[in-house]
Design a protein around this nucleic acid. Structure first.
Lengths: 109, 109
DNA sequence: GTTATCCTCAACCATATGGTTGAGGATAGA
DNA sequence: TCTATCCTCAACCATATGGTTGAGGATAAC
């Protein structure tokens, strides 16, 4: 979980995931639009890979990456616990109520 | 966005958010169950605060914290783009199709 | 075989993280 | 007033992050 959120905590890596959602890409293709060296981009790919968000297949000299979205569903499941709090009305009530008691939620993820 | 995901990328901070969902807590109360110094926990609170996830009110010598969940909704909105990919059937198809074409999704967040 | 391409690796550097301890400011309670 | 409590701050340390460059392995192309 730490690894997943950490992987998402960098714009370059989120961009990679976004582009991988449209289909497979090689490391070089992932690196191309980024203003950094290929080696740096390669490290970002490795971070995504170690978080389980990206899978790599080496075909010849190309390392082709594809999205492995399952860990994202875990992250969303975690966040979903707080959905009730996003509600604008509750958000506003937070200023008034002390302490807030969102009775809808009892257990934490 | 980086700050929000970074804030979520540590178990101690996620634990703080979870407990704050049940109501306001002081820094000391947030720190109590953690196996680290008060100063360390205080730093974690500051990370949550700078990500906009926690708001602090100083009343006397107590620093009382409350959940500020709005940034979590932004994070979830970002993740929601990938919802289609979590589907088990699509997940399985990923092994077969090359490249994957989840036609449901066109634009990225 | 030679060369160009794709990518990783290792070394290096600057800065950020995550923890500690010790000092101390501010407030509450006696 | 004196003391205990809550919390931040500063200094310090080890390690992780995020970037660079240079070298080189493996494969494709010629």
């Amino acid at each position: 979980m730490d690894a997943v959120f950490h992987a998402l905590a960098h714009d370059a890596r989120r961009g990679m995931l976004r582009r991988l959602a449209a289909g497979e890409l090689s490391v070089g293709e992932l690196a191309a639009p980024l203003r950094m060296s290929l080696a740096a981009a390669s490290k970002h790919v490795k971070v995504l890979e170690q978080a389980g968000l990206v899978e790599r297949t080496v075909t010849g000299r190309r390392h082709v990456c594809r999205l492995r979205p399952r860990p994202l569903s875990d992250a969303t499941a975690w966040l979903r616990f707080y959905e009730g709090f996003w509600d604008a009305r509750l958000d506003a009530l937070q200023h008034v109520l002390d302490p807030p008691h969102p009775s809808v939620h009892e257990e934490a993820p």
